[in-house]
């Protein structure tokens, strides 16, 4: 059996440095919150629980089912993890999975890992949990239906985020990448929804206590519902908009300073010893020189320590 990667893992080289760093910052802030909060809902058994469940998500991603023409469907798991473990723990678990996939299997890059964590770990968990939480008071059919929709949307959202990052990096053209990614993932998301619902059905039958009132799954705050609904709305509204009027979005991005002329700016942080956000000024040249100096300084310090460590 082969370990089969989900088609959303962005490798290094496909995102610009600026987009990579912004995604890293967003992910890092969210994860700090997750670390601080997951402790409260799970207590001291959180470590073995999250650790083994991370291995579960990893292993569950290997379960595939044949679809047609040699292709196969499988699970991404963000929604399932967040629904069963609670949103914060779900995010941490997904992050660990993405880190191991990138480090051990080169499935997804390192510099772009912040983006992969954001798309596949954070967004999926927020949508999956937020929507499910909205239906938590309902009966079983409602819960399972909403979980299925949430799972489908979580994959669509991950695909949308990935497309936007690729476009902002100047790697893909908006009017092609969005319909292509969302089209493919609309199908992949169906598999995700079916697997998630079937898995939850079994869990509700066998261990209803795991999803009951006192479980970590029930402890997420109502704020998640808002977050989940907002991101879902963004997916539902933004996708057709982006495909119909890509020029509009491009104008917005240009105004925000993401896209320079002809895709050139975003991925060169220090081109010709100038910093792009400062323009072609003396200050920019000086700062670029300073950065160079810091690197050289670090090298010298390291060399010095190496020589000292000898004695």
């Amino acid at each position: 059996m082969q370990y089969s990667p989900a088609p959303l893992h962005i490798p290094d080289g496909f995102l610009s440095l600026v987009v990579s760093i912004i995604c890293w910052v967003i992910s890092a802030i969210t994860l700090s919150a997750a670390i601080a909060r997951s402790n409260k809902s799970l207590g001291e058994r959180q470590i073995p629980l999250m650790g083994v469940m991370a291995a579960f998500i990893f292993a569950a991603q290997m379960i595939n089912f044949p679809v047609a023409g040699g292709t196969s469907g499988h699970l991404l798991g963000g929604a399932l993890a967040a629904i069963t473990l609670g949103p914060w723990a779900g995010m941490l678990v997904m992050t660990a999975v993405i880190v191991v996939q990138a480090l051990l299997f080169q499935d997804g890059g390192l510099l772009v890992m912040g983006a992969n964590i954001l798309n596949m770990g954070l967004v999926t968990a927020a949508i999956g949990y937020g929507l499910y939480r909205a239906a938590a008071a309902g009966n079983r059919t409602l819960k399972l239906t909403v979980a299925g929709i949430a799972a489908w949307l979580s994959v669509m959202a991950a695909a949308l985020f990935t497309s936007l990052q690729l476009w902002l990096s100047g790697t893909s053209q908006l009017q092609i990448v969005i319909p292509a990614m969302l089209g493919v993932h609309a199908l992949i998301g169906l598999g995700e929804a079916l697997i998630t619902v079937a898995a939850l059905t079994l869990i509700l039958q066998t261990r209803p206590d795991l999803l009951g009132e006192n479980s970590a799954s029930a402890k997420g705050s109502r704020g998640w519902v808002v977050a989940g609904v907002l991101i879902s709305l963004a997916v539902v509204l933004l996708s057709p908009l982006a495909s119909a009027d890509p020029d509009g979005l491009e104008r917005v991005a240009e105004d925000l300073g993401f896209l320079g002329k002809g895709f050139s700016a975003p991925y060169q942080l220090i081109p010709d010893y100038t910093l792009p956000f400062l323009g072609q000024s003396n200050l920019s040249t000086v700062l670029a020189g300073l950065i160079g100096l810091i690197v050289v300084g670090a090298v010298i310090v390291l060399l010095g320590q190496g020589l000292r460590a000898k004695s």
Partner: peptide
């Protein structure tokens, strides 16, 4: 897909108990 989901559910329960 349902069979695969059932397998994932089984794996979930076993993993939970293992944890």
């Amino acid at each position: 897909a349902n069979v695969a989901g059932h397998m994932a559910g089984q794996l979930f329960l076993r993993s939970y108990e293992r944890s």
